[in-house]
Design a protein around this nucleic acid. Sequence first.
DNA 1: CGGGCGGCCTGGAGGC
DNA 2: TGCCTCCAGGCCGCCC
Length: 274
Amino acid sequence: MPELPEVETIRRSLLPHLRGRVITQVTVRQPALRERVDAVALRRCLTGQRIVDIHRRAKYLLFHLASQHALVIHLGMTGRLLIEPASRPANQHDHLLFHLDDGRQLRFHDVRRFGMCFVVANGSLAGHPRFRHLGVEPFDAASSPDYFVRRARGGRKPVKNFLMDGTVVVGVGNIYANEALFVAGVNPKTAAGRIRRARWGRICAALRNVLEDAIDKGGTSFSNYVDGEGRKGYFALELRVYGRAGEPCKGCGNQVRRIIQAGRSTFYCTRCQH
DNA sequence: CGGGCGGCCTGGAGGC
DNA sequence: TGCCTCCAGGCCGCCC
């Protein structure tokens, strides 16, 4: 579900509720997520620990604890994190309950169970198998035209799939890859290795603009995304091509086209994107 | 090796 | 009402 703007929105919405709180207990109701949850490790590392900050890396949320460990959560396609009173009965898809010292709980809810949750010592974060191969953050200076030129060199992968490759650049999923290429005016089928520096500059800028705009609007609630306080995002109203097959292009009025690339829907305008 | 596909899950939408 | 197919924000293992 959530791409960078949704994960970032969730991070910001949770921070005021969780910073300074102590985790008093952890309940694992359903350990069978994408990666089996190690309930023993979670309880051992989290119980009695204070949450000092929340960071985001790629689409992962990192809850930093006073103990120099981080609770890592990935939301997969349908994951939600909600702060709720402990007295409210848990839903069938509330798989993990983090009890807090203020009588509330942080609840991990995930219908499809593609999410992940594990604990890592701060020192071993960068070397962790899930983090080691991650690409650049779109807002980092490292995410530059030169970087994309270098990474794409010789590659024949379509630029849309290249942007969704987390070993190149992180946080970009199907919605924002489509949107950024529309804004940049680039055909999603173009081989990444054949794009020149000036075009990468436009793609880079479009990606940042689209992601920043989406964060400002609280993310995209396409079907069921909500932030940590249960609020929907309003970027769906701003989508230029994603999910708009057959509707008029906002640039030229031509019908938005839908094709399949690497098994995922791609939306683009054949007239505005070359 | 680079790149594509199927699979992991559940549920909603739409056709008949 | 039901039953079927298709589709969905991510990611990885496997295959050519």
